[in-house]
Computed example of a mutant assay.
Amino acid sequence: MPSESVMVSIQWPDGRCSRCPKGQDWLAASREAGVHIPTGCLGGSCGACEIEVNGTVVRACISTVPAPASGQLTVELATDPHW
């Protein structure tokens, strides 16, 4: 089965839920769900787009949606006092 067909359920910080294919860009997944993730450099160096996915901090501009064993991801927006 191709990885694109593996669907992942995402629970967003505002309580919204969505589904997207494994490997989709985090910023695209959030846009499709109507959730805003702040961005800065879009190259992974500034950290403005950091999100916490199942307890692990990732930079949304350079990361893709993984396929967890449970099929469910919980996203929290990381908070940085400088942004």
Rank of each mutant, 00 (worst) to 15 (best):
S3V: 13
E4T: 02
S5N: 07
M7F: 03
M7H: 06
V8Q: 00
S9Y: 09
S9V: 08
I10Q: 03
I10D: 00
Q11I: 15
P13S: 11
P13K: 14
G15Y: 05
G15I: 00
R16M: 01
R16K: 08
R16G: 08
C17K: 15
R19W: 02
P21I: 09
P21T: 13
P21S: 15
G23E: 04
Q24R: 14
Q24A: 12
D25S: 06
W26T: 04
L27E: 04
A28L: 15
A28R: 10
A28N: 02
A29V: 05
A29Y: 01
S30K: 00
S30L: 04
S30H: 04
S30Y: 04
S30M: 01
A33P: 05
A33G: 05
G34W: 07
V35A: 09
V35R: 11
H36L: 09
H36S: 07
I37W: 04
I37L: 09
P38Q: 06
P38D: 07
P38N: 02
T39Q: 11
T39P: 00
T39E: 07
L42D: 14
L42W: 04
G43L: 14
G43Q: 14
G44A: 08
G44T: 09
G44L: 10
S45P: 00
C46F: 08
G47L: 11
G47V: 11
C49R: 07
E50L: 12
I51T: 02
I51M: 14
I51F: 04
E52F: 06
V53Q: 04
N54E: 07
N54P: 02
N54H: 05
G55P: 06
G55V: 13
T56Q: 12
T56I: 15
T56E: 15
T56M: 10
V57W: 02
V58Q: 12
V58T: 10
V58N: 00
R59Q: 15
R59C: 08
R59Y: 12
A60L: 01
A60P: 00
A60T: 02
C61L: 03
C61D: 02
C61E: 05
I62N: 00
T64S: 03
T64I: 10
V65E: 06
V65F: 08
P66T: 10
P66I: 03
A67Q: 10
A67C: 03
P68W: 03
P68G: 03
P68M: 03
G71Q: 06
G71F: 10
Q72N: 14
Q72F: 05
Q72M: 13
Q72V: 09
L73I: 07
L73K: 01
T74E: 14
T74D: 09
V75A: 03
V75I: 11
E76M: 14
A78G: 04
P81A: 13
P81G: 12
H82K: 09
H82F: 06
H82C: 03
W83T: 10
